[in-house]
Design a protein around this nucleic acid. Structure first.
Length: 582
DNA sequence: CTAGGGTTAG
């Protein structure tokens, strides 16, 4: 029989949960474990590193019951195992107990203990400010604790607090940089993320996988294709292995930058594809209107043994929506419930309502809303309302508007769409009433905002905003575009959806200052002839802009790729990949 | 007790 030292040595090298369990069994039957804190410590450490860290939790109570004192290594290891298995029953309570014990033993200010305590406060306990207090009072703090707290604050939506910590930490490493970059990405501030990444490089810190995943996500947010390609080139140049994380991030970046083919190229070279990888490729094809290819991929995923989850079904259903495949949509919805036992969430009903409404099956869509087991939310009403607009059903739009406004009285969405529908159908008085209602309530329409990347720099245009340094040239270019498309293509501005009570010529002016028109005019004066133009927009494209963009693509012989709120439009030779259906 | 940071979403 091996001595204590032998067991400790054995455990320290052991990483497999089953082997550890065997050793533990031997120690329990021989009664040896009750005599040694060191053995408890070795077991806890080994388990905390194994695939089933929660098995370490009961050992702590066992240690105390045996009347033994934890060794200086026990507490950090145990806390780590708690941090790794936050969902285990009693994990939070145990963390609190261990904290109290550490205080009693006077150990809480020691480096490894305080770092581990910060880890559980930021994680299982979700008490970030207590974690921060620990960090401030600890005798010595690792960069790791800063990093943990930075990402915890960012995850909690408190990027500003994360940034404060980042700025004050004495020495930053690659992990700190990726924590803050990914923090900004999470907060939806890709711009700031890219800026931080630039600073990271300026300071000579070598970027690793994790930060590049974040950078790619930031590029995806902004449609920053050039920068995204740079990352891909960097990976290739360094011969970096494309992990599932990196591959998925690349796929997502390329599809959100309008380059589905490049996304496919990356996807096909990925060796092990997990659910996330499949899902992002399926979604990528879906938003580009390539529904049947997306659905083919979905069945390929199923036959490769990857089980779709609720989000994968959202991808597949939205593929049906963008491609107008109503029957296939029903089929998928049924297979989700019957074959996979996934309970449809409101998102899935939303997809179905969208699918039905877009295809003119407005009554069926309405019925779906009435039959679904949960209360409809704003997105559900929005989907049906968009269908009403497309199929010019004013009556149903009024019904939808009533419900939607009740749900979101302070947001502009319902008012704007309803007023648009009234205006388009010639009911100007009703449209005016809605506008007055908005004015009384002080509701502002979300301003349209478009960005365009020129030589790696992102330029932003907001509707009616004339503050761009080259605005004079942009407006001159717009006049040229305007007269060319009038002359060559017979363009007449479509003023039906202009919501302001102004003179007709002013309406044309208002239209001409829509953000994507400014962005396209700017792109035309700043890029060489054959380059496709890529625009990212925060709202849906209006009818007039959609029409104008088609004409520009023909007259100027340019491909224009517009990513709007819900999908991609590829304008080429006077027509659009969405088949005028968006 | 060598970590600490990460990808999809109507």
């Amino acid at each position: 029989m091996a001595g204590v030292a032998g067991y400790v040595e054995l455990l320290s090298r052991c990483g497999e949960a089953r082997a550890i369990a065997r050793i533990q069994g031997a120690l329990v039957t021989s009664g040896r474990i009750r005599q040694s804190a060191e053995l408890h410590d070795a077991l806890i450490r080994a388990l905390s590193r194994s695939a089933r860290p929660h098995l370490a939790h009961p050992l702590y109570a066992h240690l105390l019951r045996a009347g033994l004192l934890p060794t200086p290594h026990t507490l950090p290891s145990l806390l780590k195992s708690i941090a790794l298995s936050p969902a285990a029953p009693g994990a939070a309570a145990l963390a609190v107990a261990v904290h109290a014990h550490a205080v009693k033993l006077g150990l809480e200010r020691f480096r490894h203990v305080s770092n581990a305590l910060i880890l559980v406060h930021a994680g299982v306990l979700g008490r970030l400010d207590d974690g921060l207090l620990l960090l401030r009072t600890a005798a010595a703090v690792d960069a790791a604790s800063f990093n943990t707290l930075i990402s915890a604050y960012a995850r909690a939506g408190r990027v500003a607090d994360a940034r404060k910590l980042f700025d004050e930490m004495p020495s930053r490493n690659a992990v700190s940089w990726s924590a803050i970059v990914n923090g900004y990405v999470q907060a939806g501030d890709g711009m700031e993320a890219l800026e931080m990444f630039a600073r990271m490089q300026a300071e000579g810190v070598c970027p690793d996988d994790t930060v590049l995943v974040g950078v790619l996500a930031a590029c995806a947010q902004h449609g920053a294709l050039e920068q995204g390609k740079w990352v891909h080139g960097y990976l290739k140049a360094n011969g970096t292995m494309i992990t599932v994380f990196l591959g998925t991030a690349l796929v997502d970046m390329y599809s959100k930058c309008g380059e589905v083919q490049l996304a496919m190229d990356v996807f096909e070279t990925m060796k092990d594809k997990n659910l996330l990888a499949w899902t992002s490729m399926i979604k990528g094809l879906a938003v580009h209107g390539r529904g049947s290819e997306a659905l083919a991929l979905f069945s390929q995923m199923e036959s490769s043994g990857v089980r779709p989850d609720d989000i994968a079904f959202i991808g597949a259903l939205s593929a049906c929506t963008h491609a107008g495949l109503v029957n296939k949509g029903w089929e998928l919805f049924d297979s989700m419930v019957m074959k996979y036992g996934i309970k449809p969430k409101i998102e899935h009903y939303g997809c179905m309502v969208d699918l039905l409404a877009r295809n003119g099956l407005l009554e069926e869509a309405k019925e779906m809303i009435q039959k679904m087991p949960m209360k409809p939310d704003a997105l559900i009403w929005g989907a049906l309302m968009a269908g009403c607009r497309f199929h010019k059903n004013v009556e149903l739009a009024e019904y939808v508007g009533k419900h939607w406004i009740l749900l979101e009285p302070d947001k502009s969405g319902a008012y704007v769409l309803l007023a648009n529908i009234y205006a388009a159908s010639g009911r100007h008085n009703s449209a005016r009433e809605i506008r007055n209602l908005m004015r009384e309530k002080g509701i502002d329409k979300t301003p349209g905002c478009s960005t365009v990347e020129i030589k790696g720099i992102i330029h932003q245009f907001i509707v009616g905003d004339l503050s761009h340094p080259r605005i004079k040239d942009i407006l001159t270019k717009w006049h040229e575009i305007d007269s060319r498309i009038r002359l060559e293509e017979g363009y007449i501005p479509d003023k039906k959806e202009v919501l302001v009570d102004i003179e007709e010529e002013e309406k044309e002016d208002a239209l001409s200052r829509h953000s994507e028109k400014l962005a396209i005019a700017f792109a035309l004066i700043s890029t060489s002839d054959k380059m496709p133009i890529r625009i990212v927009k925060n709202l849906r494209v209006c009818h007039d802009c959609h029409h104008v963009t088609k004409l520009i693509s023909k007259v100027y012989g340019r491909e224009i790729i517009v990513r709007d709120r819900t999908r991609f439009h590829l304008f080429k030779d006077g027509s659009c990949s969405c088949k005028d259906y968006w």
